[in-house]
């Protein structure tokens, strides 16, 4: 059965994702573990660090295109951004401006700021935001791949949406505040974080795809992320933002807010989009959902 040859992106480590995403043997790591130091800030708080501080950066090839890559490790401190972690990503994006690779692939798997290094993390995310926009302004597409167990939350949710495009799996989540945070502050009636089906109807890949918040939806499979990224870059032309484009985006966001601003569940929006059996959406496989979206009235 084909199930057994699937290599889940959700489950894989950052290094396993890179190994399967890039052309075999093409990856070369910058600042690899053997020459790196774990975060001194974690050590100060009596916590063990990781040699790569939870992010792997380097260069490689994707379908023979030269690319730069950054992959966050969701299993280490929730992929959260600390001083070294953030600085590695910033350095990679600056390198992209100088080197002009075919793309930067950003494998996001992060809850946002690492609280143990809160200020360093927040500022680093701000620097990453500026650096992503600098790379894009230099004509280098930055593609966010979101399908890890930590999703893309907090500042990393903002970073993902600053990228040229987002490729997601159904398992991926993309949002600002985590459901647990909303539940803690606003109560379980506002958001029951344990109702995982609801969490995914609000933040998951399928909903984001139906709402055009991600450009491509792929299966939870490393090979599918690879195919999805190659196909996306095949057709991609990175062009600088213009006033007209930002105005159009502003209008689209305004329109969407007035149309769906009162909705509280993906089911309501999907029905409003013209999907006849919205409750079936979570059960559809990736191809079925893509076909469903193509058939929707525009």
């Amino acid at each position: 059965m084909s199930l057994s040859i699937r290599h889940s992106w959700f489950e894989a480590t950052a290094r396993q994702r890179l190994a399967g995403l890039l052309d075999p043997g093409s990856f070369c790591e910058f600042l690899p573990p053997a020459v790196a130091q774990p975060s001194p800030h974690l050590a100060q708080l009596d916590l063990p660090g990781a040699f790569d501080d939870g992010v792997v950066v380097g260069a490689g090839q994707l379908g023979s295109r030269q690319v730069l890559v950054a992959a966050q490790e969701g299993q280490f401190m929730g992929g959260a951004v600390g001083e070294i972690h953030g600085a590695k990503i910033v350095g990679l994006l600056r390198r992209a401006v100088a080197e002009r690779p075919a793309a930067v692939l950003f494998l996001i798997d992060s809850g946002g700021v690492r609280l143990h290094e809160a200020n360093a993390g927040l500022i680093a995310i701000s620097e990453i935001m500026r650096a992503v926009l600098d790379a894009r302004a230099a004509g280098v597409p930055v593609v966010a791949l979101v399908g890890g167990s930590c999703g893309a939350f907090g500042g990393m949710g903002i970073v993902a949406k600053l990228c040229s495009a987002v490729v997601m799996s159904e398992e991926g989540r993309l949002a600002l505040s985590g459901p647990e945070v909303i539940e803690t502050v606003a109560g379980v009636e506002e958001f029951d974080a344990k109702d995982r089906a609801l969490v995914w109807r609000v933040t998951g890949g399928k909903h984001r795809y139906l709402m055009d918040d991600c450009a491509a939806l792929v299966d939870d499979d490393i090979a599918a992320f690879r195919r999805g990224s190659i196909e996306l870059l095949d057709d991609w032309q990175e062009t600088p933002d213009t006033l007209a484009r930002l105005r159009a985006k502003q209008a689209r966001l305004q329109g969407r807010l007035s149309a769906y601003g009162r909705c509280r569940d993906g089911l309501e929006i999907w029905a409003a989009l013209g999907i006849s059996e919205p409750e079936r959406v979570p059960l559809l496989d990736c191809d079925e959902l893509i076909a469903l979206k193509e058939g929707l009235p525009t």
Partner: peptide
Amino acid sequence: LSRSQELLCLNGSLAHLASCVDF
């Protein structure tokens, strides 16, 4: 902090604002 805000991808609107400032 609300479900309806996240449903419409609040991080997307914040990113849009950031990209306008950068623009």
